[in-house]
């Protein structure tokens, strides 16, 4: 399941950590949150970001759409 772990620090420094998403779609998923809060200072992508959505998942996504 797609999840965002959001931490809002004293002073308003916020970090958003995304879990359960593969591929670059994860950035799109968090963009609205990021824009609502302020300006992105740093973004680190992890291995899962570079993973392709597997065929089975892609088919299920198409069916859903």
């Amino acid at each position: 399941m797609k999840k965002m772990r959001i931490r809002i620090g004293k002073g308003g420094k916020t970090t958003v950590q995304v879990e359960g998403v593969t591929g670059p779609g994860c950035v799109e998923w968090t963009q609205a949150f990021e824009q609502a809060i302020g300006e992105v200072e740093e973004r680190k992508v992890c291995a899962a970001y570079h993973e392709e959505v597997s065929e089975g998942v892609a088919e299920r996504l198409e069916e859903t759409l």
């Binding site: 970090t15 995304v18 950035v27 968090t30 302020g38 992105v40 973004r43």
Partner: peptide, 11 residues
């Protein structure tokens, strides 16, 4: 985890 973002609050 797929990415991690740091954001500065802007009012």
């Amino acid at each position: 985890m797929s990415h991690f973002t740091k954001i500065r609050t802007v009012i």
